[in-house]
Design a protein around this nucleic acid. Structure first.
Lengths: 153, 153
DNA sequence: TTTCATGGAACTAATTATGTTGCATGAAAT
DNA sequence: ATTTCATGCAACATAATTAGTTCCATGAAA
């Protein structure tokens, strides 16, 4: 299975945006994320629909943070990008009448559900502000400026 | 991403085998699993290497359970099929020098690791015998015989 | 020696996330 | 007004991966 990196990518973008004052264009963010502007728009669309960011067309347009990083958690962002499935395994649902399959599925589903629950509760425990603070701590440790890290946006 | 169903498939096969006396051929098991004999051999190879089942060529050959279902857990089987990754998400590892990426990855990795841990501990809490008992309970509830469930092997 | 079964390699198909291209829309600058 | 810049959206291409398939070799029992 090819693995989904939307959550990782969008968090990366958001953290960079928190360190910027002016709106950022999709192209700038794409450079930060090492991808294509269209991909950025795609993943950011969910955040915009939930009101976490705004987008504006034309001169001076682009993306801006529109939420309080101290109250928005990674779980909110996870939902905003479409809540991609955590679990990379599936059942062979070919034979729903088979009692063996029912037993197996029930056992595995329990383990899957628990993993999802724990995962989301971990995300819910981290705010964007906390992530940003962690970043700034690393920045200070290394004695760099934000500008050096944002790759000359 | 296409999702991995090896664990589900092999458990299905094992449960059917626990209800049989003679060795089962790959073709019989494939019919049970709704797939191809070669696929069965592929997933069973791991179990054989770990000694959970045996395989024999020629007349009267096939696959047989070679372990005590009361002591083997789903976690053992999970490892035997190659420990396919539970998590369907990944980082964008393009820029390892980027401190933002480091912060994001650290936060997500924590959540991923915890999910994996919980998942495996759930698997470790279920033995093959327990799964089989669950199956037999369902069978009794429905008033069917094993033969009816094994689709005339 | 024939038949049956696994073992293993190589190839095909299907799925899905990501990347790409093209054009429409609308806002600001000139 | 018109040009420029930027998002919005749809359609298509690419890449990675899992499962399915075909073919032939090997070896055991009848």
């Amino acid at each position: 299975m090819k693995r989904d990196s939307k959550l990782s990518g969008v968090l990366h973008v958001l953290l960079h945006m928190l360190g910027m004052k002016a709106p950022a264009t999709s192209e700038q963010l794409a450079r930060v994320m090492g991808t294509n502007p269209v991909v950025v728009r795609r993943v950011m669309a969910g955040l915009r629909d939930q009101g976490f960011v705004t987008s504006a067309k034309g001169h001076g347009g682009g993306w801006a943070v529109a939420c309080d990083p101290a109250t928005v958690t990674l779980a909110d962002i996870y939902k905003a990008v479409g809540e991609p499935t955590l679990v990379a395994m599936s059942h062979r649902t070919q034979m729903p009448h088979c009692l063996v399959e029912q037993s197996v599925n029930r056992a595995l589903d329990g383990a899957f559900r628990e993993a999802e629950t724990i995962f989301q509760s971990h995300l819910a425990a981290v705010t964007l502000a906390a992530l940003s603070a962690d970043f700034n701590r690393r920045l200070a440790e290394r004695g760099q400026t934000i500008e050096e890290q944002t790759h000359a946006l």
